[in-house]
């Protein structure tokens, strides 16, 4: 079994630890895990901006470099959504790339989805003891239907207690370029998320998408909350989460 770990550009730049945590988890399943050396970005920013042509160029690159793996695992709902749901749309009318995109889509999994499905018995380390709450990212939840998987995994971490916050399915306001182009609106939205988090009073908020997490963390800190940790679920599951 050969797995390609697709390290998203945000993880590459902003929090490499998430990539290594995902790597440890996947290696623990006994698979041969590789981070394809040429990978850069899935092209979502271009797609999102409406630049189909540019998005296609990057999609072609990703499809080609991920062709030879049994599974592709992505520690992000939104990049998984791009590979699984958007790539086939981008090449719907393309006889060469279309079938390749569809084949890749069928082999691509978000990290928690993958672990829950293919490694249900994977031993998980004990938590240092902690009280967490989970933020469902939009693309993971509404794009891929990921809801139970992260919760089932967290439930298996000894010493960890999960309390749901109100509106855990509500958008955090990140939205990629939206967070910069409409910064004040984005900030207003994430403020509401911060309030939900504060009400739960957990030690950490956990999620599966680094974009959301950077947004939430950035706002929590600006509001003066230096206490609540903001963790990617890979960091929690692999143990030794660092914020």
């Amino acid at each position: 079994m050969r797995i390609a770990l697709y390290v998203t550009c945000l993880i590459d730049l902003m929090r490499p630890g998430v990539g290594f945590a995902a790597l440890r988890l996947l290696e623990a399943t006994g698979a041969d895990v590789v981070v394809p050396p040429a990978q850069t970005c899935c092209g979502q920013p271009a797609w999102s901006a409406g630049d189909r042509q540019t998005a296609r160029l990057l999609a072609e690159k990703a499809i080609a470099e991920l062709a030879d793996y049994d599974h592709v695992v992505v520690p992000s709902g939104s990049c998984t959504d791009q590979l699984r749901n958007i790539y086939p749309q981008l090449f719907a009318d393309d006889g060469h790339w279309g079938p390749r995109a569809t084949a890749l889509a069928a082999r691509t999994f978000e990290l928690t989805e993958y672990l829950a499905r293919f490694a249900p018995e994977l031993p998980l380390p004990d938590a240092e003891g902690g009280h967490v709450t989970y933020h469902d990212s939009c693309k993971g939840l509404r794009g891929l239907g990921i809801k139970q998987q992260p919760r089932a995994l967290l439930a298996r971490v000894k010493g960890l207690q999960l309390t749901e916050m109100a509106d855990c399915e509500e958008c955090c306001g990140f939205g990629g370029a939206f967070s910069v182009n409409f910064g004040d609106v984005s900030t207003r939205i994430v403020d509401r998320k911060c309030e939900s988090i504060a009400t739960v009073g957990a030690d950490a908020v956990v999620g599966g998408d680094l974009g959301c997490l950077l947004n939430i963390e950035g706002r929590l800190r600006r509001r003066g909350d230096e206490r609540t940790r903001v963790l990617h679920i890979a960091e929690v599951l692999a143990g030794g989460g660092e914020s």
Partner: peptide, 19 residues
């Protein structure tokens, strides 16, 4: 990206990329 830091801090990463 002032639109980001007007309302939020930006985590600075570790100074090295994953790759």
């Amino acid at each position: 990206a002032p639109g980001w830091t007007d309302g939020r801090d930006l985590a600075a990463g570790s100074g090295k990329t994953f790759h």
